[in-house]
């Protein structure tokens, strides 16, 4: 699986996320309150809304359209109207850059 250079660690505030588009796909990259980075699919599994406009609360991302919630560490759907888990991707940090492993 290729590792893709997505952004600088300083591009994302703690407890926030950004959108990252690559090869026709869209991803969401998160900076958790404890300083770790995570990546998920960029669109909500409910109705394809970009999660990048949503709200990060601890380890939860809330969709900006219908307030569905996921745990972005595992992709687990936590609150209706989302029922389908988000796809997650491995991340690593090297030399101040965040890489994600895309399939």
């Amino acid at each position: 699986m290729p590792w893709i250079d997505a952004c600088a660690t300083t591009d994302i505030d703690e407890e926030d996320l950004i959108r990252f588009d690559h090869a026709g796909a869209t991803y969401a990259i998160y900076h958790s309150p404890e300083g770790k980075f995570y990546a998920t699919a960029g669109l909500c599994s409910h109705e394809n809304v970009h999660l990048c406009d949503g709200l990060v609360m601890d380890h939860i991302i809330e969709c900006p359209k219908h307030n569905g919630q996921f745990d972005y560490r595992t992709g687990e759907a936590k609150r209706a109207p989302v029922c389908i888990n988000l796809k997650t991707y491995k991340t690593k940090v090297e030399a101040g850059r965040v890489f994600i492993e895309v399939s």
Partner: peptide, 10 residues
């Protein structure tokens, strides 16, 4: 109605 209202917002 939780789902009805989700559709109302979509």
């Amino acid at each position: 109605w939780r789902w009805s209202h989700a559709r109302h917002h979509t």
